[in-house]
Write a protein that binds this DNA or RNA. Sequence first.
DNA 1: CTCCTAATTTAGGTCAACCTAACTTTTATT
DNA 2: AATAAAAGTTAGGTTGACCTAAATTAGGAG
Lengths: 216, 216
Amino acid sequence: MTPNKEDYLKELYKLGGLDHLVSNKQMSQVLEVAPASVSEMLNKLSQEGLLVIEPYKGSQLTPDGLRIAISLLRGHRLWEVFLIRHLGYTWSEAHEDAELLEHISPSRLTDRLDRFLNYPEYCPHGSVIPKSDGQTNEDTLMLLADLKTGDTSKIKKVLEEKKFLDYLQNQGIEIGTQFTVTSVGDYEGPFTLALEEKTIQISYKAACQIFVSEPK
Amino acid sequence: MTPNKEDYLKELYKLGGLDHLVSNKQMSQVLEVAPASVSEMLNKLSQEGLLVIEPYKGSQLTPDGLRIAISLLRGHRLWEVFLIRHLGYTWSEAHEDAELLEHISPSRLTDRLDRFLNYPEYCPHGSVIPKSDGQTNEDTLMLLADLKTGDTSKIKKVLEEKKFLDYLQNQGIEIGTQFTVTSVGDYEGPFTLALEEKTIQISYKAACQIFVSEPK
DNA sequence: CTCCTAATTTAGGTCAACCTAACTTTTATT
DNA sequence: AATAAAAGTTAGGTTGACCTAAATTAGGAG
Ligand SMILES: [Mn+2]
Ligand SMILES: [Mn+2]
Ligand SMILES: [Mn+2]
Ligand SMILES: [Mn+2]
């Protein structure tokens, strides 16, 4: 197993889990490699029994592949907690460096880091950190974009993409922040949110990348 | 710069610094690759201006190569401090995992780790940790093997090699431990050391891999 | 000074991970 | 159903890092 292969498995999991097939196109985009390279690598991984390919349709992890993907995600998220909690990283910096650190995980390292951090449940961006045995129970959340004017809710999770993370942190959005939707622009228009201290506007696109709890 | 190349530079520094040429044989041994691979890689690195080769004689870092080597060593040793101080690693485990972590060092990570650890001066095995600007002032130490019966001194530094580190830790030797040499076996025989609590014997070979302060 | 041995270099491969270009299959549109 | 566009695969090539085997050089022993 190399860092490269690990990233293929991890992205395959993030894109499709065990629910549905993931297209090579998507993989090629998130991994930033040519489609041909994806075909090639997925073939190797399927020979190693880590995923199953439906030619021309897409691919999906096997239980073995899933195990590896989850342990990667576990490492990634624990490192993020460390970088932010102890080293003063920003959201996007943490995500970047965790992308490398996740591959250094003889599981002794991950498990000890987990203990050092006192077994955190979520990464700084709100994703669940799988347990050492691979167990991971996802919360059921809804998209901010699906809220209506007047709804009050809490930010629970955000997608991890450098520019988006910087944008959110500049806006002062944090996991756990409570807010009320004060207006929703028509035709994929912007959302206006009343936070505790201030009011902010975010684009419809951003609202599609933010997960929130059920509104009250 | 790849992790591989980094390790070549680092080992070249550890073996020869800026004082003398290092033979390919030595490099081939510490890096555990074939001599031919060393020739090849050193050629590439010399084309990148990171070292200078005297054909058939050996090679030596340039200032550029030195800078990289030192920052690697810095990362390596800081990670060791973290792993031992906060994650409960043993001497040899720490050295092993630091070997990987050292390559993840966008210097923002190293520098923040340094601050988090409160700017430690030495790694757990007693080597000096270079500063962020590359400055590094080595202490002048002597070999335990050169001590005479009756000498009293302190353990200051040990060479980092897995089996050796485990051996030392089992013997209860730590950096800073004070001891008195109570006997020296003839003909490369063992050294007997009186520590605070107990008396131990170590082989001549081990005594050549342990550095101590001037005896009083 | 010659010869031998050990160290080094060179030559010719392998393997992982990528690429581009050409071809095939699927799917969406008329 | 025919065709065009999009997605996927195959073929052929590159680069980095390694290897073994063969040739070359340096340095020491006689
Ligand atoms: Mn990664
Ligand atoms: Mn995260
Ligand atoms: Mn290393
Ligand atoms: Mn050390």
